[in-house]
Amino acid sequence: MATPEEIVRFDEVEPPPGASPWVEGAGPGRDVVVVEPDPAWTEQAARLVDTVEAALGRTAVSVEHVGSTSVPGLAAKPLLDLLLVVPDPDDEDAYVPALESQGFRLVVREPWWQGHRLLRHHDTRTNLHVFHADGAEVARMRMFRDWLRTHPDDRDLYADAKRAASAAARDAGEHVMQYNARKQDVVRAIHARMFAAHGYPV
């Protein structure tokens, strides 16, 4: 498992020279519209979690709903985020074909960053993030979701940052990675409070 020292460290890991995280034909999305929370997101995510678990069986160490759509009352892009933990993300044959049979498509391959892969589903718009169990990002995703669920002031602060970032990114014609950068300062400030409350080094 990741240590507290690893969890609080946001490493900016660059691709090796000449490498791209994007699978050929894929790239960052351009839909940065933030909408009001939809109670249906929880049910939609639960169905997809069941789909992934059934497709992968014991290969799926865990599958769960994370990200903004997993936080009741939080405005978000209407795009579900799921977290899939597998024993070895580099062994794509163990999980990618089974997920593709359920409508997912591999779009990101980042073995240099905690083994991360990203698959998209378009029928129910979803980002499925794949990591190994020891990745610090796995712990951060879970902690951030749970913190926002129980701290409405930070949830509302984050919602305001998302709406402002969305409006600015749309005005500038930016893609989702640039939208994420616009709200990063608020995200990091919330993380700092969260880490401090857990007694982690900050």
Rank of each mutant, 00 (worst) to 15 (best):
E5P: 14
E6R: 15
I7C: 15
I7L: 13
D11V: 14
E12C: 10
P15R: 14
G18P: 13
A19V: 15
A19T: 15
A19C: 15
G25H: 10
G27A: 15
P28N: 13
G29C: 08
D31L: 09
V33P: 02
V34S: 04
E36G: 03
E36K: 10
A40C: 06
A45K: 02
A46P: 08
V49M: 03
D50H: 02
D50A: 08
A54K: 03
A54I: 01
A54R: 02
A55G: 02
L56Q: 07
A60W: 05
V71S: 07
P72N: 08
G73L: 11
L74M: 15
P78G: 06
D81S: 09
L83R: 10
V86N: 01
V86R: 04
V86F: 00
P89H: 09
P89F: 03
E92M: 13
A94V: 01
Y95T: 01
V96N: 02
V96S: 05
P97L: 08
P97A: 11
E100T: 11
S101K: 00
S101P: 03
S101C: 02
Q102H: 13
Q102M: 08
Q102P: 08
G103F: 03
V107P: 07
V108E: 14
V108R: 12
R109T: 03
E110D: 11
P111H: 03
P111K: 04
H116N: 08
L118D: 00
L118E: 04
H122C: 11
R125H: 07
N127L: 12
H129C: 07
H129N: 01
D134E: 15
E137Y: 12
V138Y: 11
A139Q: 13
A139D: 12
A139K: 08
R140W: 04
R142S: 07
F144K: 09
D146H: 00
T150P: 00
T150D: 12
H151V: 04
D154I: 11
R155K: 00
D156Y: 10
A159L: 10
R163W: 10
S166P: 04
A168M: 05
G173I: 00
E174V: 03
H175A: 12
Y179I: 02
Y179Q: 06
K183M: 01
K183S: 07
Q184K: 09
Q184T: 13
A189C: 10
A189Q: 09
A196E: 13
A197S: 13
G199F: 07
